[in-house]
């Protein structure tokens, strides 16, 4: 077929909607997030002492970490879902790491040295790993489906960012249940839960997001 003819077909098809990366991400976060939230309230539910700890600095550190990570990950997924995306990480992606480091500093400064190891281990590390991954799953699937409409320069990098975003949303929900408030626990187990999600995202993204 001549290219002119193909162009005519494309022109005739111009009214069909296209999806922008931002919209793809917001929709998957909303849809996956609702499913994950329903699962959360069915299986886990909010910790009973939430009101009491809500304004403690350790809980706020946890909240700041997950929300910073969600913000950074949304930005990264959107940016990386474009064909002309730059490969380098931007400085602001270090924000969640900075929150984590500040939290660890505060914990080490205020807690007796002998307790630190126990605080890092926490009460429910395996529950944490398991549920963050489980709560991340709906968002993960929704993101991989929606991002197929985009054109990432590097499908695996975009997928990795999507995996971390899904994990961050799982972590945000889980943090409402989790009673391990130490930033040391956060830096160990939350981060350990997020890493395989980023890896899975890179793996699936590399296969599913090619265009």
């Amino acid at each position: 077929m001549s290219t002119e003819r193909l162009i005519e077909a494309l022109v005739a098809d111009r009214d069909t909607p296209t999806i922008t990366p931002a919209r793809a991400v917001w929709w998957s976060v909303a849809a996956g997030g609702v499913v994950a939230a329903i699962g959360f309230f069915l299986v886990l539910d909010v910790r009973p002492d939430l009101a009491a700890v809500l304004l403690s600095w350790r809980f706020l550190t946890k909240a700041a970490f997950v929300f910073a990570l969600i913000g950074v990950a949304i930005g990264e997924v959107v940016a990386r879902s474009r064909p002309d995306a730059r490969p380098d990480l931007r400085t602001w992606t270090l924000l969640p790491v900075a929150v984590l480091i500040a939290g660890i500093g505060g914990e080490v400064a205020t807690q007796p040295a002998a307790d630190l190891l126990g605080l890092g281990h926490g009460m429910h590390p395996i529950t944490c790993l398991f549920f963050i991954a489980g709560l991340a799953a709906p968002v993960f699937v929704a993101l991989l489906v929606a991002l197929r409409w985009t054109a990432p320069a590097s499908p695996s990098a975009c997928g990795a960012a999507a995996g971390v975003l899904a994990g961050a949303i799982g972590a945000a929900l889980y943090s409402l249940y989790c009673t391990d408030d130490s930033p040391l626990f956060l830096a160990t187990w939350y981060v350990l839960a997020l890493m395989p999600l980023g890896l899975l995202g890179a793996l699936f993204g590399g296969r599913l997001l090619r265009w």
């Binding site: 193909l6 296209t18 922008t20 879902s81 474009r82 064909p83 409409w149 054109a151 265009w211």
Partner: peptide, 23 residues
């Protein structure tokens, strides 16, 4: 051209078009 047509939502209207086309 097919990819440009189907993925045109990934171009930002406030950005130049050419780098996106080249990519």
């Amino acid at each position: 051209l097919l990819a440009i047509h189907l993925k045109r939502g990934t171009w930002r209207e406030d950005q130049p078009l050419r780098p996106w086309v080249r990519a």
